[in-house]
Write a protein that binds this DNA or RNA. Structure first.
Lengths: 356, 356
DNA sequence: TTGAAAGCGCTAACAC
DNA sequence: GTGTTAGCGCTTTCAA
């Protein structure tokens, strides 16, 4: 069955194609009689006409599509949320999302950007799986938004998680529960992710505000990809002598937090009674499934995806055009935080910071 | 900067636009002198020309895009693999993937299909998150492939996991290790998924072949979405008197297998020495992270996504046009299967099936 | 209030 | 071998 064209509607309604176009696009400028409008609409419905987007795109130079190129987005557990946010926003604005995964291959990326530009996408989103700084790729249209990454030359809108605020919330949660000896279970990589530095900064700031100078031994590291690495790092913490041993751990991610659980359990320590734990990521199938469920900081992937699409479509203005927008990371309170064990001795070397 | 058009190349090379088109599209039919070809290519490179896909699409009626509409695909852990497979195949064939998520909302689905058709996608993939039977939606183009679902009227190509073969492999693995009392930890839903019936069928067949009549008490159920439900079901199994108690469990999915681990641990049972477990799904972050790592059957999401895109693009023929293609589910051997404990009494009521 | 005609950028018959 | 021309289906002046 051949597609029905605008000329078919015109013929059925006994008018010209321009009239049909005018009516169907609700062009208020043109004065078409109410009677004609009705007849055209009726005819369109009867023959089942929907405009050919390609022809319309050629003529109007707008395709109602938005291109999304990402490194490994579609294959990781977080990816879906970003896609879903971008896709929902696109749909609400009558746009379609064209997705390309590059697997971080520069050649694929270059081809993808070109293909998307050739397809005349109205806007583009450049997304990465982890918050990082990227070199601005060649050939991106002006209407490009960076998602979960910040371009080295900050010339275009970008949205990233507010890691510092998230880190602060995590440490404050522990402080509020009465902890003073709080460890930072960091990620150990030759080229540490942006998030690591930012969350560590938050950790130091909040402790300083509380007059706590962290013991260097409280800063431990794991590879970040396995629970086992979190367990090993936690073991090092729990091996500390009682007066230096942390009563709480802020973990770089939920997977290492899972490892902290294992380490605690193997020593007969209860969470949270003997050890409080806060994670980061709110990773499905991890944070919620742990026993007890893990208190953690959520990465706002859905919201970032939505923000990116809305800005790309011009439906929203970035508050500060030259700064990445920092999307809040909400704390998800579950059951892994309580007050420290009563027997826990107060820290020995916790001198208040004397910065003015 | 305005896009460069074919006429710019023609002007730069001193030829007509048709010559440029002929050269750039490698039309072997047309005899263009090698010298002219070189000049055109040179000019195209110099001015940085790439064809406008929209204009080309209008003219050729082929857009080199493929539409993928799915229910909740992008938001679940498995989704990425299907997307990645489809996307890789699309890219290899020079096509772009247009993605729409419907959240299983029929109105959204209808609009999505229409939008994709209006955008003149060359082919369509209709995907679901779980293997199920679907009513064929209205308006799908002829070139549609069903991914991870089978249309009620089997008129179009479809690909689903080979659940029966996967289930057989799981149970055979246990049988080969020497188990005779093998439980089936099923999913408990009012409207059970296709996979449940198929895997159960495999379970019964393989046991029958081995001359084992399963004790009805070995068929237990959990809600399938939480590890806790798997634990509770496993408890019921382990509460059975010693001579009826299973030495191995085949679980509907990895999450419930995780629950089986918890149940075993709470009774001081070692896996696999005291209890062997096989899961299904090979779910990242579950199967591999369990201690010991779980032997399981993988769902071939990537391969199914790739198959669907290749068939949609005509790059591959379905072997049996009217039957869904059954994609093999490979067994992933890890460390949760061993021979049954030596002390385990052999089953009491295991009479061979006498079916011819 | 409506229709005729041009043109978006490209490809493919058909001339020459 | 290469250029001219028509037309994909639509929107948008402009004229009537």
């Amino acid at each position: 069955m051949a597609r029905v064209r605008i000329s078919d509607v015109a013929a059925a309604a006994g008018v010209s194609t321009s009239t049909v176009s005018l009516v169907l696009n609700d062009r208020t400028g043109a004065r078409i009689s109410e009677e004609t409008r009705a007849r055209v609409r009726e005819a369109a419905a009867v023959v089942g006409y929907t405009p050919n987007s390609i022809a319309r795109g050629l003529r109007t130079q707008r395709t109602r599509t938005i291109g999304l190129v990402s490194d490994v987005i579609a294959t990781t557990p977080f990816a879906g949320r970003m896609l879903a946010g971008a896709q929902d926003a696109a749909r609400e604005h009558g746009h379609l999302l064209i997705l390309v995964n590059t697997d971080a291959d520069p050649a694929v990326e270059r081809d993808a950007i070109r293909a998307l530009v050739d397809h005349q996408v109205d806007a583009m989103i450049f997304a990465t799986m982890w918050h990082r700084v990227v070199e601005t790729p060649e050939g991106l249209p002006d209407r490009t938004v960076f998602l979960d990454c910040r371009p080295a030359d900050g010339t275009r809108p970008a949205v990233v998680p507010d890691e510092v605020a998230g880190g602060r919330a995590a440490v404050r949660e522990l402080l509020a529960a009465g902890h003073r000896r709080i460890a930072w279970l960091d990620i150990d990589e030759p080229d540490p992710p942006v998030a690591s530095g930012l969350r560590h900064q938050a950790y130091r700031e909040v402790l300083a505000e509380a007059g706590i100078t962290p013991d260097p031994a409280w800063h431990v590291r794991g590879d970040g990809t396995t629970a086992a690495s979190g367990r090993a790092a936690t073991d090092r913490l729990l091996d500390l002598p009682p007066h230096r041993r942390p009563t709480a751990i802020f973990c770089f991610n939920d997977r290492m937090a899972a490892g902290a659980y294992v380490a605690a359990r193997h020593r007969g320590l209860e969470i949270p009674a003997d050890l409080s734990v806060v994670g980061y990521d709110d990773q499905q199938l991890v944070a919620g499934e742990l026993d007890p469920p893990l208190t953690t900081i959520a990465l706002p992937h859905y919201e970032m995806g939505r923000w990116a699409a809305e800005v790309a479509l011009g439906a929203r203005e970035p508050p500060e055009p030259d700064q990445p927008y920092l999307m809040p990371c909400p704390i998800i309170r579950r059951d892994s935080v309580s007050s420290p064990p009563a027997a826990a001795p107060t820290p020995a070397g916790g001198e208040p910071d004397t910065t003015p």
